[in-house]
Amino acid sequence: MSKELNLTLKVWRQRNNKAKGQFVTIQANNIADDMSFLEMLDVVNEDLTRKGEDPIYFDHDCREGICGMCSLVINGRPHGPKEGTTTCQLHMRSFHDGQTIVIEPWRAAAFPVLKDLAVDRTAFDRIQQAGGYVNVNTGGVPDANTIPIPKRIADEAFESATCIGCGACVAACKNASAMLFVSAKVSQFALLPQGQTERYERAQAMVDQMDKEGFGSCTNTGACEAECPVGIKLTNIARLNREYLNAKIFRQEDVHS
C-alpha cells in the first residue's frame, strides 16, 4: 500500500550552458511512494511554479523507458539505484522517508549541460551519422525472407539494437566513454547479413567520430553494463574492438580502395 515520503533534494541548477551552476536544496514533502521519480519532480516543479520560482528543467518524454530522453544521476548512479530501469521507470518506493537525494546531470565533456539537469547529447547522433546505417535506398530491396537469418543471430542483433541512446553508459563510466553505445550499434550490423558490406568502414567511421566528440576510452570497468537500463552487454565492446582492429590491421586496403 502507498506510503508517503519526505525528502531533501540536492539538485544541480544551472541557468544555461554558459552560466555557472550550483547545488540547490529543495524540500519534497508528502511524496507518494508509487510515484515515479519524474512524477516526484513534477510535483516539486508545480510547487516551484506556484511560488513563482523557475521549475527544474530535466529531459523526459515517453515516460515508459524506451525513448531514452530521461537521464539524471541520482545519488551517484545514472538512472538511480534500481538496476535495469530508466529514471522514468524508477519509483519512489526505491527511496526511504527522510532521505537526501542528490540529483546531477550526466557529466561529460561531450554532453554539455544545457540547463539544470538537461544535457546536449547530439554527439550520439553524430556518431550514428558517421556510419550507423546500411546504405540502402527506399524501394528496390529484396523480399524480406530472401536471406534467412538464424534465430540465434537475429536475437543477438536485437539485443544490441535495443540500446535507447540515453547516455547512461557515458555518465557511469569514469572516463565518460561512449564505447557501449557505439558497440551496440556496430554489433547489430556486424551480426546481421545486411550489415556485412560496410561492416569494417562502419566500425572505423563510428570510432573516429566517437573520438572526435571527446569521449574517453574504455578501461573495461564494466560500469556501463551495470548501469545500462536495457542490459546492453560488454561483449558488444569486445566485438567493436574486434571489428575495429580487424578493419584497421587486416582490411586497411579494402577500406581505402
Binding site: 544541480w12 551517484g76 548512479r77 574517453g216 560500469a223
Partner: peptide
Amino acid sequence: RQNKAARPVGYYKSSGNENSK
C-alpha cells in the same frame, strides 16, 4: 589525461562501487 578531459566536471556524489570494482 584524455579520460580526465572527457569529464571536466565531476560528480558531487559518486557511487562507483555500486557498478564497478
